[in-house]
């Protein structure tokens, strides 16, 4: 018997299910149903409330936020942020149409449209959406959003639309499924839920930021 058969046989021998067909049906229905469980009351807010909650929660995990009125102002805001941190106006940038149509040169930004490399200090990425409940950004990897952009550069800049802010993680799953990316080969290879900057407490439980992932996270929330 293969290990697979051995394990499944051992599991089955211990399970007493009076009606096997009903059990199979229950499992199939559960897998297809996406039933939600209890949701925290803190996300029962209108959209403006969710945007405010997201800002509060992301701030609490060491991200900085800036609200932008118009997307054309994004390159200038990025350049300003990098100047403020005394960093060169250079970044690796996700090959996302929303970022492609911005005029980076006008803000004297040099952007490399590719996955980040070891030497890149700044990465700019676009998330699928953001979860207000805990200030969490949801990135779905693909040609328009390299997963390594969320980890390799020391400074992680995120361009988020206000309309992409949802209440709970369950709303993010609905968006993923609605985009046709909830199953099989269409599923993103990597789905990153990112809540603040990289951190550790492994030495004397002293909180330190930027262990392997970014030390700095700056979120530009574009009104739309």
């Amino acid at each position: 018997m293969s290990a697979r058969e051995t394990i499944l046989a051992r599991v089955r021998a211990s399970r007493t299910r009076p009606d096997e067909a009903a059990a199979k049906r229950a499992v199939d229905e559960r897998l297809a149903g996406h039933a939600r469980h209890l949701l925290p009351a803190r996300i029962a807010l209108d959209h403006a409330g969710l945007v405010a909650l997201f800002a509060e929660k992301a701030g609490a995990v060491d991200a900085t936020l800036e609200t932008i009125d118009d997307e054309t102002d994004v390159p200038a805001a990025v350049a300003r942020y990098l100047r403020g941190r005394n960093l060169p106006a250079e970044a690796a940038i996700a090959a996302h149409p929303d970022l492609d149509r911005l005029d980076w040169q006008a803000s004297t930004m040099t952007v490399a449209r590719r996955a980040p490399e070891g030497a890149d200090r700044v990465g700019i990425n676009r998330p699928l959406c953001a979860v207000a409940e805990t200030g969490t950004l949801v990135f779905a990897s693909g040609p328009q959003s390299p997963a390594t952009m969320n980890f390799l550069p020391e400074t992680h800049i995120v361009v988020l639309r206000a309309s992409e802010i949802v209440g709970g993680y369950e709303d993010a799953w609905d968006r993923l499924r609605a985009a046709g990316r909830g199953q099989g080969p269409a599923l993103p290879r990597t789905l990153n839920l990112v809540t603040g900057t990289s951190r550790t407490g492994d030495i004397e439980q002293i909180l330190q930021l930027g262990v392997h992932g970014p030390k700095f996270m700056h979120i530009l929330v574009v009104k739309d």
Binding site: G142, P143, T148, R189, T190, N192, L193, T195, S198, G213
Partner: peptide, 22 residues
Amino acid sequence: GQEMSAYTTFSAGAARPGDPDG
């Protein structure tokens, strides 16, 4: 004692055709 850990990562399969990494 965090509300959410910094990184919760869902991995599925190998890199898809056209993916820049993975």
